[in-house]
Amino acid sequence: MISFQLNGVTVTTDVPEDTPLLWVIREHFRLTGAKFGCGMGLCGACTMHFNGSAVRTCVLPISAVADGEITTIEGLGQAQSLHIVQQAWITHNVPQCGYCQPGQIMSASALLSANPNPTDEDIDSFMSGNVCRCGTYPRIKQAIHAAAEAQKNRVVLFDPVQGEGVTT
């Protein structure tokens, strides 16, 4: 029996220890925001936060997260309480097909926690583990800069109720 914090709630599971976290979260806890892309930690579609750091969960055995804290895209922010990175993603029209975006957003939010003011080079280096086939990279970069700026100035970039940005 393995127990861990999932989006702030303690959960337990008895799946075999080598089961990748991704499949436990998707099929046992039915949070399907994190996606399966490669199964080898090469594309980042499965990215979640493990104790605050971005990890590739398609290759992370469930045993490794025992007693740890896992945050998924569902725990990062929801429609009525968007994380600043999610807001920036909307205002910069980042998602196209959207499949890789939960992973991109989890990576970007981990980057901004560790480095609130990243340079282009910081972003290139941190985000290059996340593949996007629709070609949203230029917008991801812009959105990360916008989120960093908004975080600094405490600005809400997108409010789904108002449909636009407001300053707090």
């Binding site: 949070l31 399907t32 925001g33 994190a34 996606k35 399966f36 998924t72 895209i73 569902e74 922010g77 929801q78 429609a79 968007l82 999610q86 993603w89 909307i90 205002t91 029209n93 980042v94 998602p95 959207g98 499949y99 975006q101 939960p102 957003i105 997108f158 789904p160 449909g163 636009e164």
Partner: peptide, 19 residues
């Protein structure tokens, strides 16, 4: 305004086949 499928796609609620 932003594309109308953006909100679902940034919150992980957009349903793909695999979901």
């Amino acid at each position: 305004g932003p594309r109308i499928d953006a909100l679902a796609k940034v919150t992980g609620t957009a349903e793909f086949g695999i979901d």
